[in-house]
Amino acid sequence: MATISFPNLYTHRKVAETKAKSCDICYRLTSSVLITPDNKDFFYICPSHLKEPALCTPKIDTEAIEARKKKELEEEIERVKKEYEEKQKKRKEEKEKGKESEKDKDKKDDEKNKDKDEKKDEKDQEKSKGSRSTSREGTKSPPVEEEPRIFELKPTFYQQRLLKKRQAEVAKRNRERLRDPTFFPSVPKNLP
Results as ranks from 00 to 15, higher is better:
residue 85 E to I: 04
residue 160 Q to W: 04
residue 18 T to Y: 00
residue 25 I to F: 10
residue 181 P to G: 12
residue 102 E to C: 09
residue 2 A to W: 07
residue 33 V to L: 09
residue 4 I to A: 15
residue 78 E to L: 15
residue 148 P to R: 11
residue 62 T to F: 05
residue 31 S to F: 02
residue 113 N to H: 15
residue 33 V to Q: 12
residue 22 S to H: 11
residue 148 P to S: 15
residue 108 K to P: 03
residue 32 S to N: 10
residue 172 K to Q: 15
residue 127 K to R: 13
residue 110 D to A: 13
residue 152 E to A: 13
residue 44 Y to D: 12
residue 187 V to C: 11
residue 32 S to H: 11
residue 98 G to T: 08
residue 34 L to N: 08
residue 132 R to I: 03
residue 165 K to H: 14
residue 19 K to A: 15
residue 104 D to H: 03
residue 63 E to K: 08
residue 74 E to W: 04
residue 172 K to C: 04
residue 75 E to M: 07
residue 171 A to R: 10
residue 130 G to D: 05
residue 111 E to G: 12
residue 44 Y to F: 13
residue 191 L to V: 05
residue 6 F to C: 11
residue 180 D to V: 05
residue 113 N to A: 13
residue 6 F to G: 13
residue 98 G to V: 01
residue 43 F to K: 04
residue 11 T to K: 08
residue 96 E to P: 00
residue 162 L to F: 07
residue 175 R to I: 03
residue 120 K to D: 14
residue 148 P to G: 09
residue 93 E to G: 04
residue 170 V to C: 10
residue 13 R to N: 04
residue 147 E to D: 12
residue 176 E to N: 14
residue 96 E to C: 05
residue 87 K to P: 00
residue 120 K to L: 13
residue 138 G to I: 01
residue 162 L to Y: 01
residue 11 T to W: 15
residue 48 S to D: 10
residue 8 N to H: 02
residue 174 N to W: 02
residue 41 D to C: 08
residue 73 L to P: 06
residue 39 N to V: 03
residue 126 E to P: 00
residue 176 E to A: 14
residue 186 S to Y: 13
residue 188 P to R: 11
residue 116 K to S: 08
residue 110 D to F: 07
residue 116 K to N: 12
residue 80 V to Y: 07
residue 95 K to D: 12
residue 191 L to T: 11
residue 30 T to L: 02
residue 31 S to L: 02
residue 144 V to E: 13
residue 105 K to C: 00
residue 162 L to E: 10
residue 80 V to N: 06
residue 148 P to F: 10
residue 62 T to H: 05
residue 150 I to E: 15
residue 104 D to R: 11
residue 77 I to M: 14
residue 135 S to H: 04
residue 89 K to G: 05
residue 45 I to A: 06
residue 143 P to V: 11
residue 167 Q to Y: 07
residue 85 E to W: 02
residue 48 S to T: 07
residue 173 R to S: 13
residue 136 R to E: 10
residue 147 E to A: 05
residue 126 E to Q: 13
residue 116 K to D: 15
residue 191 L to K: 05
residue 25 I to R: 08
residue 129 K to M: 13
residue 36 T to P: 04
residue 31 S to T: 03
residue 18 T to F: 06
residue 62 T to N: 06
residue 139 T to R: 07
residue 61 D to P: 08
residue 134 T to P: 01
residue 171 A to K: 09
residue 91 R to S: 05
residue 85 E to A: 12
residue 36 T to Y: 11
residue 21 K to V: 08
residue 174 N to P: 00
residue 54 A to H: 14
residue 79 R to S: 15
residue 94 E to A: 11
residue 58 P to Q: 12
residue 190 N to V: 02
residue 84 Y to F: 09
residue 138 G to D: 06
residue 102 E to P: 01
residue 47 P to S: 12
residue 24 D to V: 00
residue 167 Q to K: 09
residue 71 K to M: 09
residue 134 T to K: 14
residue 180 D to K: 02
residue 46 C to S: 06
residue 96 E to H: 08
residue 185 P to V: 11
residue 56 C to P: 01
residue 17 E to I: 07
residue 139 T to V: 02
residue 138 G to V: 00
residue 147 E to P: 01
residue 37 P to A: 14
residue 59 K to L: 14
residue 2 A to S: 12
residue 88 Q to Y: 12
residue 166 R to S: 12
residue 17 E to K: 14
residue 80 V to W: 05
residue 44 Y to W: 13
residue 34 L to Q: 03
residue 6 F to Q: 03
residue 136 R to D: 06
residue 189 K to E: 09
residue 161 R to L: 03
residue 17 E to W: 02
residue 64 A to L: 11
residue 71 K to T: 09
residue 16 A to H: 07
residue 155 P to L: 05
residue 68 R to G: 09
